[in-house]
Amino acid sequence: MVTREDVENIALLSKLFIDENDLDKLTEDMQNIINFADTINKASDESEEFDNINNLENVFRNDVVKESLPVSEILSNAPEQADDHFLVRKRG
């Protein structure tokens, strides 16, 4: 059972602000999503293969250095930057 508290907690973890008035509706929606996802539980997961659907294992990379990107490119998507650092402003 999804409770109002669950939704509040998930909102907190997701850094989402939720209006008190929307809580009941969201709880109901969340319950429906969980119910839907529960369908998956009906499938058998005993097979080892289930854990490894691509049937791939041990895909590795050699420990050889390649050039990194210039700092200007690394920072090019940053909402804010200062002194070649990503800048995270104090909130509130």
Binding site: D63, V64, V65, K66, S68, L69, P70, V71, D84
Partner: peptide
């Protein structure tokens, strides 16, 4: 190791900030 765990950027210590980075290790 010479390189990071999931990309080929160097692990060398003490470089200028954000110069040992690539799209993988900045999580693009």
């Amino acid at each position: 190791t010479n390189t990071k765990i999931f990309c080929s950027c160097t692990t060398a210590f003490g470089a200028e900030p954000n110069t040992h980075c690539c799209p993988v290790c900045i999580g693009l």
